[in-house]
Amino acid sequence: MHGSTAWFDSGTVTPAAPRPPPKGKLWFVNMSAVFPPVLLFDLAVLPCLGSLNPLIRTLLLCLAVTAMAAWILVPRLQDFFKKWLYSPLQAFHGRHERRTAQG
Rank of each mutant, 00 (worst) to 15 (best):
G11A: 07
P36E: 01
V13S: 12
H93R: 13
M1W: 04
L63P: 04
G3F: 07
P20R: 06
H2K: 10
W27A: 14
M31Q: 13
Q90D: 12
P15M: 10
M68V: 09
A44Y: 02
L52Q: 02
N30W: 03
H2C: 05
L73S: 05
S87Y: 01
C48N: 15
V34G: 00
S4I: 06
A16S: 12
M1L: 09
V38K: 00
P47Y: 11
V38W: 00
R99E: 08
N30R: 07
P18H: 08
A6Y: 03
L89A: 13
C62Y: 11
W27C: 15
Q102F: 08
R95K: 10
G94W: 03
P54N: 14
V45R: 15
P37F: 02
W71R: 14
R76I: 07
Y86W: 12
L55H: 08
H96G: 11
R57N: 01
R19K: 14
L89Q: 12
F8G: 06
V74N: 09
S51E: 15
W27Y: 14
P18K: 10
F81L: 07
I72V: 06
K82F: 01
P22H: 10
G3C: 04
S4R: 07
I56L: 13
N53W: 00
L26T: 00
H96S: 13
L46P: 06
V38C: 03
V13I: 12
T66Y: 13
R98P: 01
A17T: 12
N53E: 07
V45W: 13
R99K: 08
T14K: 13
L59P: 00
D42Q: 15
F41M: 05
L40S: 10
S87G: 12
G103N: 08
L77K: 00
A70G: 07
L60Y: 06
L55K: 00
K23E: 08
G103D: 09
G3R: 06
T12V: 09
T12F: 06
A70D: 07
W7L: 13
W71H: 14
L43Q: 14
H96R: 12
A44V: 15
F92P: 02
P88Q: 11
F28D: 08
L40R: 02
A16E: 03
H96C: 08
A44T: 12
C48I: 15
F41L: 01
T12N: 10
L61P: 03
C48G: 15
P47H: 11
G3Y: 04
H96F: 09
H2A: 13
F92H: 11
I56R: 00
A16T: 11
L63C: 12
T100L: 11
D79K: 07
A16K: 09
F8S: 03
L55Q: 13
T14L: 12
W7D: 13
L89D: 14
